[in-house]
Design a protein around this nucleic acid. Structure first.
Lengths: 113, 113
DNA sequence: TCATCATATTCCTATATGGGAATGTGTCAA
DNA sequence: TTGACACATTCCCATATAGGAATATGATGA
């Protein structure tokens, strides 16, 4: 047998660094394929193909607008990864670290509402 | 080109479900290859090979003991994944959810010190 | 209607994989 | 010393990539 297809789940889709880069680039915005091509310096087919994989696992959502496609990140699709990794968090993070993390996050949300 | 090798980083190593199962099975314990074979119902070579990948990216540590090998999870190797996913956490988690999560965790640590 | 723009898809190829089967390696016990 | 035991590694093969190049699809404006 071969490797698990990239479109199987978020874990496999996100294994490829280019795809993580795409998600990072989009972030909280809504971007066009062309914009992504410019920002990441990848070829257009490359971007389209990676986006297709991300779409297949629900990691991005698209909105058609004339001949443009606006892509945005669908955060909740990452939750399975987050939840799984989280079960090992205690290994490296003490409770005080976690408290620091939370406070830092609350603060950042305070600053950027 | 082909896909990114599984031994490239934690993201790729963990993409395979069997490897996540292995980490879950080991958990906070220290287990033998034979134990893992029994618990997961995989073949011995299969377990050894998956463990080799996990070893390559530092996700597990081994201790030799006679003809046994005791494997344990090396949590911090998962931090890169945790950190990356965390940057998207705001999308699905409100601050109150996070507070609930933290309290739940503090409670569980209280109960199992 | 037609050329152009924005994306998506198809073709082609080198490559790494996961599983099964078989075998290698080191250790212990009799 | 030798056979059994616990793991690791090697071989073999079907399969799914990722990337580059080329082409298809669909919408827009003149």
């Amino acid at each position: 047998m071969a490797r698990t297809p990239t479109t199987t789940d978020a874990f496999n889709a996100v294994a490829e660094a280019s795809r993580r880069d795409l998600l990072d680039a989009i972030g909280a915005e809504e971007l066009t394929v062309g914009e992504l091509v410019d920002r990441l310096g990848l070829s257009q087919p490359q971007v389209s193909k990676h986006l297709a994989v991300l779409r297949a696992v629900g990691l991005v959502l698209v909105r058609a607008d004339g001949r443009h496609r606006w892509y945005r990140v669908n955060g909740p699709a990452l939750k399975p990864i987050h939840d799984w990794v989280r079960s090992f968090e205690r290994t490296w993070n003490t409770r005080l670290d976690r408290l620091d993390d939370l406070l830092a996050e609350l603060k950042s949300q305070e600053e950027a509402p």
